[in-house]
Simulated scan of single mutants.
Amino acid sequence: MGSEAEIVRKPRFLCLHGFRTSGAILKKQIETKWPQSVLEKIDLVYPDAPFPAEGKSDVEGIFDPPYYEWFQFNKEFTIYTNFDECLAYIEDIMIKQGPFDGLLGFSQVCSVWLPLPRIEGAILSAGLPGLQAKGVALTKVAKIKFLIIIGGAKFRSESVAEKAYSPPIQCPSIHFLGDTDFLKPHGLKLLESFVDPVVIHHPKGHTIPRFDDKGLETMLSFLERIQKMLTEKQENELHCKEGALEA
C-alpha cells in the first residue's frame, strides 16, 4: 500500500516569490485566484527567501511584512551579490523539505522603474534547470522536472545566462504572459530558451491571473501530462526495485 500511495503522489513544486515579498504573500496570491480544480492537482511549498529586505518593498501597503529577497544586485541586474548563498539556500530547502519535482516562480512588480530586479523568483525558477544541468547549482538534489513560470525573464549576467540557457531547457514548462504586462517582451524572449514551452496568454498585466476557460483547459492539460510522466517514472523505479529484490 505504501508503494502504491507513493506512485500516485501529486507533483510537488517549490514556489519562489518575487523581490522583497514573501512566501506567505505568494501563497495568498495563488490560492485566492487559482481554482481548486488546479490546486488539488499539485503540492505547493512557499519558503521565504534567505535575506531580509534591505530596502523598501513595492508591496508595502498592499501586503503585510516581513519581506525578503533572494540575492542582491546592481542597478543593471548584471552583477549579483550572495548569489551562491541563494543557490545553496534553495538546495538546502529542497533537501530538507523535498523531494520536489518542479519550481514555480512569480514576481510582484508595482514599480515601473528597474523592473527586472523585482522578478527574482521567476528568473531563478526559469534559470535553475540549466544551472543544475551544468553542475553549478542544485547538485545534491534530483533533477528539476517541471516549471511553472508567471511573468518570467532571463538573467542579465552574461556568465550566469551562458550556463542557464545554453543548450535550451528541455523540461516541460508552462508560462503565463499578460497582454498588458510591461514585462511581456522579457517573457517572450525567455520562451526562446525553452523546448516546446506551453503558454497561457491572459488579458491582465503583471499579476497572477485568474483562469478563463481556455487558460484553465491548458493548465489542466499540462498538469495531467506531468502527472502522467511522474507516475510512469515512479512505476519504473518501483519495478526496478522489485526486480533487484527478486534477483
Rank of each mutant, 00 (worst) to 15 (best):
K10M: 08
P11I: 09
R12S: 12
R12V: 07
R20Y: 04
G23K: 05
I25V: 14
I30N: 00
I30P: 02
Q36M: 02
V38H: 00
I42P: 01
D43M: 02
L44T: 06
N74L: 02
N74Y: 00
I79C: 03
D84L: 07
C86L: 02
I93E: 03
K96Y: 01
K96G: 03
D101V: 04
V109T: 14
P117H: 02
I123Q: 03
S125R: 02
Q132E: 12
K140M: 08
K140H: 12
A142V: 01
K145M: 09
L147D: 09
L147A: 11
I148Y: 01
G151W: 01
A153H: 04
F155Y: 09
F155Q: 05
F155L: 13
S159T: 13
V160A: 10
K163H: 13
Y165N: 10
P167T: 14
Q170D: 15
L177K: 11
T180M: 11
L183R: 11
L188K: 13
K189V: 10
D196N: 15
P203G: 09
K204F: 09
T207C: 12
P209Y: 01
F211P: 04
D212M: 01
L220Q: 11
R225E: 12
M229V: 07
L230P: 06
L230R: 09
T231V: 13
K233V: 03
K233I: 00
E235Y: 02
N236L: 14
L238D: 05
C240T: 11
